[in-house]
Design a protein around this nucleic acid. Sequence first.
DNA 1: GGCTAGGTACGGCAAGGATCGAACCTCATC
DNA 2: GATGAGGTTCGATCCTTGCCGTACCTAGCC
Lengths: 110, 110
Amino acid sequence: MPDEEGHPSREEMDLRCVMNALADPLRYQVVSALVKDAEDKERHCSSFGLPVSKSTRTHHFRILRQAGLIRQVDRGNSRMAHLRRADLDARFPGLLDLIRQNPAALPGSD
Amino acid sequence: MPDEEGHPSREEMDLRCVMNALADPLRYQVVSALVKDAEDKERHCSSFGLPVSKSTRTHHFRILRQAGLIRQVDRGNSRMAHLRRADLDARFPGLLDLIRQNPAALPGSD
DNA sequence: GGCTAGGTACGGCAAGGATCGAACCTCATC
DNA sequence: GATGAGGTTCGATCCTTGCCGTACCTAGCC
């Protein structure tokens, strides 16, 4: 079962759940940005420039977290997100390569 | 641009569109079944045992077709579907392997 | 030609989910 | 302790979409 913060274990990850998370353009944009980052780089949840309100952002990050795509950790006041690269590579080999080769069409965020 | 029947060319395929198509359990089930089949095997659209009406089936197959996952060809009265294996392997290498390794949890069809 | 089976198109209904604002919580800072 | 920034939760709204039935089209068959 997922931990208290909703992170599934590597074995619990479900491909359809991941697909569903990636089907949304905002969420794909976040994951695509994380994939391009350096290994395990942590990013502020508000650093992706999502054109939505705080509550909507929380909603999208929860879906990404519950799908197992990202891990969120508390850093004092803020919350940092980073790709679960090792878990994803182990559980869904090739997935991150696919995303890397198909970057999100961002409105000027490259 | 897609042809008259809505099949996108290999270059037109969009990963998010594919993800969106695969996010639905019924559609994932269809693609998962096709992936397990022999190379380029054609299947009757009604041979997947989808628990929905004809019109809903048409709806789902259209989405799969427009995403580029399957190709539908007229065979007289019926319409046969087959995986666009070569196109998918070229455009999204590793995707079909992911699906193959994560079969749909079918209600008694294994 | 008439019938049937397989598919599609259309209109409508209902569930899911993307969105927001407001209220609240927590931590860091002053 | 007060303040402010960053996040979450809640309730409401609205749009998408999965679903169906009906009507219609086409091909094959009698």
